[in-house]
Structure formats: C-alpha cells, structure tokens
Amino acid sequence: MLRRIYELGHSVTGTISFRRKAVDRTMKALFCLAAVLVILPLFIIFFDLLIKGGKELKLTLLIDLPHPVGEPGGGIANGIVGTLVITLLTMMWSVPTAIMCGIYLAEYGKGKFASAVRFAADTMTGVPSIIMGIFGYILLVLPMKRFSAWAGAAALSMIFIPVVVRTTEEMLRTVPMTVREAALALGIARWKATLRITVRTAWPGILTGILLAMARIIGETAPLLFTALGNQFWQTRLDQPIAAVPLQVFTYAISPYEDWHDKAWAGALVLITMVLVINIVARVLTRQKR
C-alpha cells in the first residue's frame, strides 16, 4: 500500500515537473522570438541601405558638394558639416541647461513646481518633432525673416533638452544617499558635494543620455525643414540657411531623378552609420559604468 502511494506520488511529481519544464522552455522560446523581432528591423534597414546605397558610397560622396542634375559625381560634404554645426550649436547651450535642470529635480526639486517641470519634460518628450519645427519657425524664422542654423539648433534643442533632463535626474537618483551624507558630514557645502561628488559619480550615465539624445536629433528632418531649410553650397554664416544630411536625403528622395535616388540611399546609409556609432559609444560607456 505504501509502495503504491509512493509510486503514485512520484508519478504526479514527475508529471508536474515535466509540465513546468515544458512551460519554461516555451516561455524562453517566446522571449527569444520577441528579442529577435525587436532587433530584426534594424538589421533589415541597415542591410537594405547597404545594398541600395553601397554603390554610391564613395569618397567623393563625403568630400564633394552636390552637383546639378545630369553631372556625374557630387556628394553631401556640406550636409555632413552642416549636421555637425547644427548639432554642436544645439548642445552648446542645451547640455548645461538640461544638466542643471536635472540636478535641480534630483537634489532640490520638491513640491508642485518640480512636479510641473517633470510633467512638462515628459510631455515634450512625446511631442512630434514637426511641432518643434513649426514652433521654431514662428519663434525665430518669422521675426528674423530668414532661415538659419540658429533656428535649426533652437528647434532641435526642444527635442534634446527634455531627454537629457529626465536622464540626468534618474542617473543622479541612482547615487546612494550615503554618499551625499558622507560629503555633508565632512563639512562640504551642499552645492559643492552635488557638483564634485554626486554628479561625478553619475557622470557616465549622464553622458550616455547626452549621446543618445544627440543620436536622436542628428536624424531629425521635420524641424530643420521649417528652420534651417537647407543649402546646396558651403555656408559659414550661422544666420543663413544651412545644409544637413537629413535635408539632403529628403531632397534627393523626392526628386524624379534616378541618380539622386541613389545618392539619397547613400546619404541615409551615412546617417544611420553616424547614429549607430553614437549608440555604440553610449553602450560602451554604460558597460564601463557597470
């Protein structure tokens, strides 16, 4: 009798164990499938661009100005330089502003005003980029009566700042409170402890957020259509229309010329490569932090 009960119990236990293992393996397979579905579009886009734009990916593409229709060659050198100029202009004042705002929210922000700032940052993160372009057009282009690099940088800063603000706040909150208390116990002023200890501790994460936000604004087209407009030549004045890679890709893509379509694919490949490099650097910094 006891042996029968033991065999029955062992059989039930084995059945339950088999079911658990089957469910576990099924869920693992579903998780792996979901992960593949997430990264698959990136590889499809990259290899499609590589196939369609690879034939135009030459040195002349990176060092020459755009040529008129019908002339062989031509490149997007002015667009690459313009993208770098607009991005640097955006970060020149957006990075300090965003970091200081994030420090305020993490270290000093309490009450309704801080909640309103967080709500505004979260809301602006989800606003379509074309709205930022229209706002930049009304705020800067119409009063100045011209498109310019400054207007483009202002429109992109409205996309850049909310992301860095929230990233800075979250990274500062990961610093243990004991670190702050130890600094204050040594008699260090709170603002000095915040800048020299708390911010320095969280700096790899903050820098990662800055790079990811930069990768996002590099590929934006809609805000620049309303503010920077684009240019087919070298432009050294920041108060004039300036070229950018997304704008040139857009111009080439909507044209009726096959040669320009090929250059659009090549320009898109250059653009996505820039974004990938920035994201890889951000991942390396995050890994070093861990």
Rank of each mutant, 00 (worst) to 15 (best):
A202H: 09
H67C: 08
A121L: 02
L207C: 14
I130S: 00
Y104M: 05
I16S: 10
V127W: 02
I218A: 05
R287P: 08
Y257S: 10
A266L: 06
L40T: 15
L50P: 00
L207H: 10
I280H: 11
V23K: 11
P68N: 09
V199K: 08
P256W: 04
F147L: 06
G82H: 04
I80D: 02
V81A: 12
M274N: 05
V281K: 09
V85E: 02
G102F: 06
G14D: 10
M144S: 14
E56V: 01
R216M: 04
R290D: 13
N78V: 03
S255C: 10
I130G: 01
R3T: 13
A228E: 03
L140M: 14
Q235C: 12
L40E: 14
H261Q: 10
F160S: 01
M92Y: 04
K58Y: 06
A153F: 00
Q288K: 15
I80Q: 04
M27D: 15
I272T: 14
I217E: 00
L211P: 01
A106F: 05
V277I: 15
V281Y: 08
M91P: 00
T221C: 09
P256T: 05
V69K: 06
P96G: 07
R25H: 08
P143R: 05
T15Q: 15
S115C: 09
E107K: 05
L57Q: 04
A264V: 03
F43S: 11
A244K: 01
V85H: 01
F233A: 14
Q235G: 10
K263P: 00
M132D: 07
I206V: 14
K145Y: 03
V38T: 10
Y108A: 13
K58G: 07
I16G: 04
L184Y: 09
I272E: 07
L229G: 12
D64T: 02
F46D: 06
A35D: 11
L62A: 09
L88W: 06
K110E: 11
T90R: 00
N78C: 10
A215W: 00
E107L: 04
W234E: 12
L61R: 00
I206P: 07
L61N: 00
I278N: 08
T123L: 11
F160H: 06
K110A: 13
I130W: 00
L184Q: 07
T174A: 09
M132S: 13
S157L: 01
D239P: 08
Y104D: 01
W203N: 07
W203Q: 09
A116V: 11
A253K: 01
G133L: 03
M92K: 02
R166L: 13
P256F: 02
D48C: 10
A282H: 01
I130Y: 00
D48P: 03
L50S: 08
F160V: 04
A213Y: 01
A77R: 02
L49R: 03
R173E: 15
